[in-house]
Amino acid sequence: MARILVVDDDPAIRQLLTDVLEMDGYEVSVAVDGLAAVRAVEAAAPDFVILDVMMPGLDGFGVLSTIRDQPGEPVPVLMLTAAAESDANARAWACGVDYYLAKPFTADAVLDVIDGVLAGQVNATDS
């Protein structure tokens, strides 16, 4: 069973993603902010990370940078954002994100990305 880490400061989004992913057979852990996310990545070694951009403290870009600095095979990261910043998308790609979805998103869109990646059907460069 693949391990997914959901990182979002919005409890409703965390719960929605947790419910959908668990129903799809994934083992889900959650983090409520960037610092908790860094600890969870180090402790749980997830197979995939869903990461909010705008969070208090360490934002998603800081978490992504920390994830990318870790040795070994890079874990795929999907960033979710409601950011109105015009450069958020470009910044995410420049920081090494694998996939990017704007909020509001559909659960099916998230599952399509994760299922495809973890089944080996999608390469990170295909996004």
Results as ranks from 00 to 15, higher is better:
Gly96Cys: 11
Asp59Tyr: 14
Asp52Ala: 10
Ala45Lys: 05
Val97Glu: 09
Arg39Pro: 06
Ala31Glu: 12
Ala90Leu: 13
Ala107Pro: 00
Met79Asp: 01
Phe105Lys: 04
Lys103Glu: 03
Asn89Glu: 14
Arg91Val: 05
Pro74Arg: 08
Leu58Asn: 08
Phe48Gln: 06
Asp59Ile: 12
Asp24Ser: 15
Val41Ser: 01
Phe105Gly: 01
Asp87Gly: 09
Ile67Arg: 00
Ile67Trp: 00
Pro76Val: 02
Phe61Tyr: 15
Leu21Asn: 08
Glu22Gly: 01
Asp87Lys: 10
Ala31Lys: 00
Arg68Pro: 11
Val32Pro: 05
Phe61Asp: 07
Met23Glu: 09
Ala31Cys: 09
Gly60Lys: 07
Thr106Tyr: 08
Asp52Phe: 04
Val20Tyr: 10
Asp33His: 07
Phe61Leu: 14
Pro74Gly: 04
Val38Cys: 04
Phe105Met: 06
Val75Ala: 10
Ala88Thr: 13
Gly34Gln: 03
Ala92Pro: 03
Tyr26Trp: 10
Asp98Met: 08
Arg91Cys: 02
Ile50Thr: 13
Asn89Cys: 15
Leu101Lys: 14
Val20Thr: 13
Pro76Gln: 04
Ala88Lys: 14
Gly25Pro: 04
Val49Ile: 13
Val41Trp: 00
Arg39Ile: 14
Gly60Ile: 09
Glu73Cys: 00
Ile67Ser: 01
Asp19Glu: 11
Ser86Gly: 02
Pro56Lys: 01
Met54Asn: 12
Asp69Glu: 09
Leu51Val: 06
Asp52Asn: 13
Asp24Gln: 13
Glu27Ala: 15
Gln70Arg: 15
Ala94Cys: 09
Ala107Ile: 00
Ile50Glu: 01
Ser65Leu: 08
Val32Tyr: 05
Ala36Glu: 12
Gly62Glu: 10
Pro76Thr: 02
Ala92Trp: 00
Ala40Asn: 04
Val75Pro: 12
Gln70Leu: 15
Arg91Leu: 06
Gly34Asn: 05
Cys95Glu: 11
Thr106Phe: 07
Met79Glu: 02
Leu64Ala: 05
Asn89Leu: 15
Ala31Gly: 11
Val30Ser: 12
Asp47Ser: 03
Pro71Gly: 14
Thr106Ser: 11
Phe105Tyr: 13
Met23Gln: 11
Ser86Trp: 13
Asp69Met: 11
Gly96Gln: 10
Asp108Gln: 15
Val97Phe: 08
Ala107Met: 06
Glu42Ile: 09
Ala84Leu: 12
Leu21Asp: 09
Pro104Gln: 08
Ala92Thr: 03
Val75Asp: 13
Ala36Thr: 02
Ala45Arg: 06
Glu73Phe: 01
Gly57Cys: 13
Ser86Pro: 03
Asn89Gln: 15
Gly60Phe: 14
Ser65Pro: 03
Gln70Thr: 07
Glu42Ser: 08
Thr66Gln: 09
Leu21Gln: 07
Val20Ile: 14
Val77Phe: 01
Asp19Trp: 13
Asp24Arg: 14
Glu85Thr: 12
Ala44Met: 11
Val38Thr: 03
Ala107Leu: 03
Ala84Ile: 12
Gly60Cys: 05
Val53Tyr: 02
Asp108Trp: 03
Val75Leu: 08
Glu22Leu: 03
Ala31Tyr: 02
